[in-house]
């Protein structure tokens, strides 16, 4: 299983969502996408986007303004 790391720190709408979707399109079933960012709305929208395409959100954590989301490609 491969891991795709997406760094969206400092990026704003719609870049974090777009970069996660690009990574999901490149990933194979079971691969992990780990995205790190600071854009507040994306923290809740990225899990919505992953669930909409049948991918699994395995972790959402925040450390101050920086959040990390881990997704397993379904």
């Amino acid at each position: 299983m491969a891991q795709f790391n997406v760094d969206c720190k400092g990026q704003t709408c719609p870049v974090p969502l777009v970069e996660v979707r690009k990574a999901l399109r490149k990933a194979s079933k079971g691969d992990i996408i780990e995205v790190v960012g600071t854009h507040p709305a994306s923290k809740k929208e990225i899990p919505m986007a992953a669930e909409a395409s049948g991918d699994e959100v395995i972790e959402v954590r925040a450390d101050g303004a920086v959040w990390t989301i881990r997704i397993r490609k379904g």
């Binding site: 709408c13 719609p14 969502l17 777009v18 996660v20 979707r21 929208e45 919505m48 986007a49 909409a52 395409s53």
Partner: peptide, 12 residues
Amino acid sequence: LIIGNGALSMGM
């Protein structure tokens, strides 16, 4: 363009 990208990103 933002809405178009948003739709694609949300899986549409």
